[in-house]
Nucleic acid binder design. Structure first.
Lengths: 337, 337
DNA sequence: CCTGGCACTCCCTGTTTCCGAGTGCCAAGT
DNA sequence: ACTTGGCACTCGGAAACAGGGAGTGCCAGG
């Protein structure tokens, strides 16, 4: 059905269209790539490709542009991920090395990825669900107010205020702190609720209600899936491509946390690079965009995802290379901290 | 030079142009506003206004549009800040009431303001420099690693890791913690460096180097002006207005923290509503935008600023009303937490 | 100082024309 | 059986053009 030459033609069409942003015709194809055949032959191949739905013409007597299906075939079988240049690698390393904070790591990553790909970068905060408790701290900040700080092994720090309706003694706090930490040390966040839920029953009845308050706030923190936090950067790059009317829709989608979640979350298994093209996207307003995403994390367990969003007409090999490389470096940074 | 009627004409031009987005001519002016004079008279007034530089015509034989100078006069003398509707007030209150976190307060505020004004909202995090220390906490998270947590009276929590090159005893930590808190309790962050800089000399020589490490990290935290953090929302609203070519520039400017800083920072004294129109803006790419900003904070001392950015052709009275109202509510929320 | 009238100026819009890139198909060549 | 050159055809986009209309400036009269 599709012999090698037809595939070569499709690849050439994708490459030319991506670089010129204009429908590509048989003649210019024959000139720019040495396919060894005449324009007429290419035309025949293109007719077949169009019939199969891989390319389309915007109107009669115009060149062809790839369809979503065409891009899909290109990504799956016709392209190889382009490795980054040494200069780019060095840039990544130096740019990420200076981070001192989880917020800072994520912030730098998203800006870096946007700059590298000249598109919109999207980074999800490392998930709480797969990390474990490193330490829990209780601090009295006012006579009726405690601060609870939860520190995870991924460098994440969550803090919450606990209101106590009367004063609490320093000993009680120390006792609770010790109890919490023995219960939770090294405990996975998924298992943490079970580990603490019956903790109030273990303390003397005087302090029980304080313990209950603390535990309730702690449970709240654990349940509130804060891994849903996602940031993006590089919206300005959208303005460069011609999105005509839909730009507004894309920007709106980007500002909706929920949409971003689904954008990254549903991209198949983590740790393998996934590409979602055009109408394969779940969200209405993103039908003319593609998403390249991959999980990242310490070692081989993915903590969260990051990726890039751009027009379907994007440089897939280059983008995939950049996304993969950045994900690796971020994983290293997180493992080292 | 400019009698009352000419000012009324200018006001009418601004109002009509803002609502229709089309150059406004003498005839439609006479119809829509009852100025009590004929189009010919208005034409004469318009000629004067144009000569003075308050309005301009895009091309001969088109209506007039206000210049930056015209908007300036309008804002300064011809408009009154429009109070919000009760429904809007209630919306603000309920929307901000649910916040549990400084991050959350800021995040909700910026989204709220964007939605309310249908423009780009910009909110600066409450400054550290004007707040004071509520509590400092030291926590051992690993044998060679301490976590320092700094809590301010504005609900801000900063945390930093302190590397210690050998194990530190629990008593030492407790001692340091107590020392730090007596030194710093209620101390303004501006004065904090002076208060702790000679603290290592007060501890026994065994613990001195630990104290030095902690103090050095603390100083770092204090010096690093984290009040420079600024967030924005509502970029999608930019796509609605016709920015033609400059949209990209505006988006780029918005993603530069430094630009945002200057945008808010240089807007005169805080606590009074300031408006910067078009070319009054410092940044090149924002020449076709206006900024409405105001300081906010607890009581009468401003902690930071927030504002709105939109096209020069914006509804100034409405925007100013929204900005002022939101700033007040946020101040109340911060004071209450 | 205001007003109606009038000539003038451009922009905008719709229409027409024209050109060219690109196609599909066919017949001839390998 | 596939490839190739030739050729008629199609259609979008640019350029050229005309008409309408909104708006202006100016002037003379109230």
């Amino acid at each position: 059905m599709l012999d090698d030459r037809k595939l070569a033609v499709l690849r050439a069409i994708v490459e030319d269209y991506v670089s010129t942003n204009e429908p590509v015709g048989s003649k210019s194809l024959a000139e720019r790539h040495n396919l060894g055949v005449s324009p007429a032959t290419i035309r025949n191949d293109m007719a077949v490709l169009e019939e199969e739905g891989y390319i389309a013409q915007p109107h009669t007597s115009a060149g062809r542009i790839p369809t979503d299906k065409g891009y899909r075939l290109f990504v799956d079988r016709l392209s190889t991920i382009k490795p980054l240049s040494p200069a780019e690698r060095r840039a990544i390393e130096t740019f990420l090395a200076g981070a001192y904070d989880l917020d800072d790591v994520v912030g730098r990553t998203v800006r870096l990825l946007a700059q590298l790909t000249r598109q919109v970068a999207v980074v999800q905060y490392p998930s709480l669900t797969r990390s474990s408790v490193r330490h829990v701290e209780l601090v009295q900040v006012a006579s009726h107010r405690l601060l609870m700080v939860l520190i995870t092994n991924t460098g994440r720090v969550e803090q919450r205020v606990v209101e106590t309706h009367s004063a609490v003694s320093e000993e009680t706090i120390a006792h609770l702190r010790a109890l919490l930490n023995t219960c939770l040390d090294g405990c996975g966040l998924v298992d943490a609720p079970n580990a603490v839920v019956d903790l109030p029953e273990k303390v003397s009845s005087d302090d029980r209600w304080v313990a209950a308050a603390v535990v309730s706030v702690l449970l709240e923190t654990l349940v509130e899936k804060h891994d849903e936090k996602i940031v993006f950067a590089g919206a300005a790059n959208l303005a460069a491509v011609d999105f005509s009317q839909s730009l507004r829709n894309v920007l709106e989608a980007l500002e909706e946390q929920v949409v971003l979640m689904r954008l990254l979350g549903e991209t198949g298994d983590s740790s393998t690079l996934t590409v979602r093209i055009g109408t394969e996207n779940p969200h209405e307003g993103l039908r003319s965009t593609s998403v390249v995403a991959v999980g990242y994390g310490v070692g081989d367990q993915a903590l969260a995802k990051l990726g890039v969003l751009g027009p379907t007409r994007m440089d897939y090999p280059g983008t995939m290379g950049a996304v993969r490389a950045v994900a690796r470096y971020v994983g290293q940074i997180l493992a080292g901290s």
